[in-house]
């Protein structure tokens, strides 16, 4: 089975429930807005008045949402006060929602061979990310590389052409501070 690559625009929100700077615990919400992946599928007909085989455009959109509890481990701070952290996300819940559509599919006359279907499943996940914080007088910025395996969940027996997603995510963002 060929590997299908899905592309997303990730949005990540991290929140430290304990205001103390040394507290390692944080909560993370992660939502991946899908970019449609295009493929092809073949459909067949017995109708002698139509082409016996047609190739259709298949569109798959995969929405991924993850909520995790994480622990931040400080690894390094340089003279400019830039710092590097390793975020461990040992427990998370991830839902993956795949929406499949076929362009111009005439399902009255044609039968799709091994069609894909929609899938919406969730399961437990683990994750890990490396975060580099750029210290700035006005606004701290960060760059994060995050990896997460697919959820611990069966995909079912249906013969789909795609698998659960293991997101590899590169995020650029701001650190916002607030005082109670």
């Amino acid at each position: 089975m060929p590997i299908i690559l899905f592309y997303h625009v990730p949005i990540t929100l991290q929140w430290k429930p304990v205001a103390k700077k040394t507290s390692p615990v944080f909560l993370e919400l992660n939502y991946n807005i899908p970019i449609t992946v295009k493929g092809t599928s073949n459909a067949f007909t017995l109708n002698p008045g139509l082409p016996k085989e047609v190739t259709l455009e298949e569109n798959i959109r995969a929405f991924v949402f993850t909520a995790s509890i994480g622990f931040r481990i400080h690894l390094y701070t340089n003279k400019k006060n830039n710092s590097f952290y390793l975020n461990l996300l040992p427990v998370g819940i991830c839902t993956q929602n795949f929406r499949v559509s076929y362009k111009d599919y005439n399902n009255e006359d044609y039968e799709m061979l091994n069609p894909d279907i929609n899938l919406n499943k969730g399961g437990f996940v683990m994750g890990m990310s490396g975060v580099y914080n750029f210290h700035n007088r006005n606004q701290d910025m960060m760059i994060m590389l995050r990896v997460q395996p697919p959820p611990f969940q069966s995909r079912g027996d249906y013969p789909l052409s795609y698998n659960f997603i293991a997101p590899l995510q590169l995020t650029f963002g701001y650190n916002l501070y607030y005082n109670k």
Partner: peptide, 20 residues
């Protein structure tokens, strides 16, 4: 015993066209 019957949403009671 388990059967590989995957229903076709367009045609109730029929399986999808598969080649597995």
């Amino acid at each position: 015993g388990k059967r590989n019957f995957f229903p076709d949403p367009d045609d109730p009671g029929l399986s999808i066209l598969s080649s597995k």
